[in-house]
Design a protein around this nucleic acid. Structure first.
Length: 439
RNA sequence: GGGGGCGUGGUGUAGCGGCUAACAUGCGGCCCUGUCAAGGCCGAGACCGCGGGUUCGAAUCCCGUCGCUCCCGCCA
């Protein structure tokens, strides 16, 4: 018999159907049993008159909450039933899998355990529809990104995550045994994205894993996360990248709101706002002035960088000045940016780079890249890098490479900001951190 | 790596120098009822993270340790 989704039962009144799902609640009475069954589309009440089959009634009585059942029965319109005004009158029941009792984590308890305990029992935690909703939103968001890229002639790439030599600084790399030698887990697809530019791909994107060996204990860091990266050729400056990004994000927010707006309001209390473009842009020098005006004291050792508290202060300023949730912090000093960021011809101390701050948290870093071999090599040396280890990368720029730029964004950080989640661990399927490798 | 906070039945909390450790929820049993966040009664379940100290007396105070968490650093 064909399966009917619980969410579609209304259109099957009077028919015999088969449903599958978890037994969320059993109300076991003297003459009747009411089973609340849940599948991915919703909940339904199943009614059973015990007198119909005493043995079956007895079997049902022993079922622990969250057991998996297949039920056939007639769908009956019944306004008395508070759950959707209909019920399935049970004809047969098959237990697919019994759930032990008590559950270590009851997904439908009034109080939700701490995040760490929830991660121990993540598959039970994820049975809550609010959790599933996060990943439905993520799915739509990723689809919207792809839609936008494909509309703009992008090529999707998948760069390797095992690397033979440390790229960039090397401090935050995971080292792994690789046969007789050592390999490193990619902490960014940066070099390979640029290689695609040298290959003449012109516009590429990648959604893939990124590894950072940073022992960071915060609500927004992970040691493995999904990076959304893109790179485009023939730009004049980082401004072109920012324009592309803001329009793409507006598209993504618009699609997510269209598909999940109601659910997001209901489950997360967030009235999703599709951001208007262009986003406010604040050059670093101006940002420092604003912080001064706002009375925010930057730590003395910061030297032109801005700490998270400063970013939040700027966000509040942007919110009250422009009523916008996003802003670009642009033109960062070379001291706090990697060697491959291009510098202004007339201001060699300043990079053509930006961060995107959403609701006070950094979610994107981007820049125009330096594509001129000699200058790139010079900047690398200046930053104390060994040319030898990055020679393969420098070679990309020896036989013709278009001017280009791009960005990297944290998927979970975006989701966290979008749904106003308190912790990135909520926004990722399975969290990986310095102290968390399981499940 | 530095700093703050928290560790009490399965879970979430209360208690913060005299506790035979309380409440909610869950779990088990019984009763009642077309139930529906069901209701009622009974019951099991915690040597209060661990180790040491102060005290007549410690879940409560102190020190150490471990775990978790948040902030900073770093970043997406």
């Amino acid at each position: 018999m064909q399966r009917t989704f619980i969410g579609d039962l209304r259109s099957h009144i009077g028919e015999k159907v088969q449903i599958h799902g978890f037994l969320q609640t059993l109300r076991d009475q003297k003459k009747m049993q009411f089973l609340i069954v849940r599948d991915q589309t919703g909940l339904v009440q199943v009614a059973f008159w015990k007198a119909n089959d005493a043995a079956l009634a007895e079997q049902i009585s022993t079922l622990g909450a969250e057991s998996v059942v297949t039920i056939t029965g007639a769908v009956v319109d019944n306004p008395v039933v508070k759950l959707g005004g209909l019920e399935v009158q049970l004809e047969s029941l098959q237990v697919e899998s019994t759930a032990g009792s008590p559950l270590p984590l009851d997904p439908f308890a009034e109080t939700i355990p701490s995040i760490d305990y929830r991660l121990d029992w993540r598959y039970l935690d994820m049975r809550r529809p609010q959790v599933a909703a996060i990943f439905q939103v993520q799915t739509t968001a990723e689809q919207a990104f792809r839609e936008y890229w494909l509309q703009h002639n992008f090529i999707e790439v998948h760069s390797p995550k095992l690397m033979g030599s440390p790229s960039e600084s090397g401090a935050e790399l995971f080292e792994v045994q690789y046969f007789e030698t050592k390999a490193y887990l990619a902490q960014s697809p940066q070099f390979y994205k640029q290689m695609a530019m040298a290959a003449g791909f012109e516009r590429i994107f990648e959604i893939g894993p990124v590894f950072r060996a940073d022992p960071s204990f915060t609500s927004r860091h992970m040691t493995e996360f999904t990076g959304i990266d893109m790179e485009i050729s023939y730009i004049e400056s980082h401004e072109d990248v920012m324009v592309f990004l803001e329009n793409m994000l507006a598209h993504v927010y618009s699609r997510v709101k269209e598909v999940h707006g109601e659910k997001i309001k209901e489950m997360f209390g967030v009235d999703l706002v599709v951001p208007t473009t262009p986003f406010p842009r604040i050059p670093m020098t101006r940002a420092l002035e604003i912080l001064k005006e706002e009375g925010y004291q930057l730590p003395a050792e910061k030297k032109g960088d801005i700490d998270p508290g400063g970013e939040r202060t700027l966000y509040n300023w942007v919110k009250k000045t422009y009523n916008h949730d996003f802003f670009y912090l642009t033109d960062w000093p070379i001291a706090v940016r990697p060697f491959y960021h291009m510098r202004y011809a007339d201001r060699p101390e300043v990079t053509k780079s930006f961060d995107l701050i959403a609701n006070g948290t950094e979610i994107v870093t981007g820049a125009q890249r330096e594509h001129r071999y000699d200058i790139l090599a010079k900047q690398a040396v200046e930053k104390g890098l060994s040319l030898e280890t990055i020679q393969f990368y420098l070679d990309f720029f020896r036989y013709g490479c278009p001017p280009h730029g791009g960005f990297g964004m944290g998927l979970s950080r975006l989701l966290m900001m979008m749904l106003n989640l308190p912790n990135i661990r909520e926004a990722v399927f399975l969290f990986r951190g310095p102290n968390r490798l399981n499940p």
